[in-house]
């Protein structure tokens, strides 16, 4: 009897309650994250065909040394680097301009530049596919024609850079406004006294930007850098939509996840797909831990 009452009171004790509160997370984490993650590791050493599983050792990883995989990795890396090169400096400068006292219509422009973030990758992707169409009447080519430029085959054309340009444009269109929001919210936390005393010391606009704004926005920059690395390495749907599927001429739009999707889903080669997933997992986790260690990403919140 007493024991029963005690048992009933256990979940109400202050010592047990926190575990009850976080228990939904623990269950979801174990079931829908840890278990699939372990499966990925196991299956990457197996050949999995429906109803039949064989251990093949490092075979799947050995198969990865092929031109398609290199192409996928290099595309993903280049995409990550160029998006970071654009989507950190550009929103940084734009948000500082928006935040300045000389600017009018700050809220209006902030809202307009944010609008693309509301659009799904499906709608945004096929819109850009048709804007970057190879026909002379498609928007970009028709604008270039005004300057006497011949129509360009942007997507999967003979030069790889045109594909990257289309991907970069789509990415910038969708995320510029979001990153501006991040920087604007970071700018609110810089005390104005800093700028005032810098002004008294005779600092110009550029010096204030360089010695106050940039260093104090560092946490925001690190955060954007982290999500950009994540987004860049995991990029797949943008390319999938621009090329109307996972097949692009000469693998122009092939990414790591795209390659995983091709092998794992389209060719039902689950073991091979898992090996790719595992490699990407190792890449992302190591980059993140390096960031964590040297940039102190999560220290701010503590």
């Amino acid at each position: 009897m007493n024991f029963k009452r005690w048992l009933k009171s256990v979940p109400y004790s202050q010592r047990i309650a926190p575990y009850v509160f976080i228990s939904p997370f623990i269950i979801i984490f174990l079931l829908f994250f840890v278990y699939p993650a372990i499966s990925t590791v196991i299956m990457s050493f197996q050949e999995v065909v429906p109803g039949h599983v064989t251990f093949v050792g490092l075979e799947n990883f050995r198969n990865l040394f092929n031109a398609d995989f290199y192409k996928a990795v290099s595309n993903s890396l280049i995409y990550t680097v160029i998006t970071i090169a654009v989507l950190i400096p550009l929103p940084l400068v734009l948000s500082v301009l928006l935040d300045s006292k000389k600017m009018v219509g700050k809220n209006f422009f902030r809202a307009v530049l944010f609008l693309p973030a509301l659009v799904s990758v499906v709608v945004g992707g096929f819109t850009f596919r048709l804007i970057f169409g190879e026909m002379p009447t498609a928007l970009l080519n028709s604008i270039l024609a005004l300057f006497g430029v011949q129509p360009v085959k942007w997507l999967g054309g003979p030069a790889q850079w045109t594909t990257f340009f289309a991907l970069l444009t789509l990415c910038t269109w969708r995320w510029l406004g979001v990153n501006i929001l991040y920087y604007l919210s970071g700018l609110q936390s810089i005390p104005t006294e800093l700028y005032e005393s810098a002004y008294i010391d005779g600092a110009g606009a550029w010096q204030k930007f360089k010695y106050i704004t940039i260093p104090l926005l560092r946490p925001v920059t690190v955060y954007i850098l982290t999500i950009s690395i994540y987004g860049g390495l995991a990029m797949f749907l943008e390319s999938f939509m621009l090329f109307n599927g996972n097949r692009s001429p000469g693998g122009a739009g092939l990414t790591i996840i795209g390659y995983l999707y091709r092998l794992g889903w389209e060719q039902a080669n689950i073991g091979y797909g898992s090996a790719i997933g595992l490699i990407l997992l190792v890449i992302t986790l190591s980059i993140n831990f390096i960031m964590l260690k040297y940039a102190g990403l999560f220290k701010r919140g503590e």
Binding site: S39, I257, G264, L280
Partner: peptide, 17 residues
């Protein structure tokens, strides 16, 4: 850690689950 790992990586086994 969940925040850092792209969901697409575990998509195959998650689908089987």
């Amino acid at each position: 850690i969940i925040m850092m790992v792209p969901m697409e990586i575990i998509m195959l086994p998650l689908f089987q689950l």
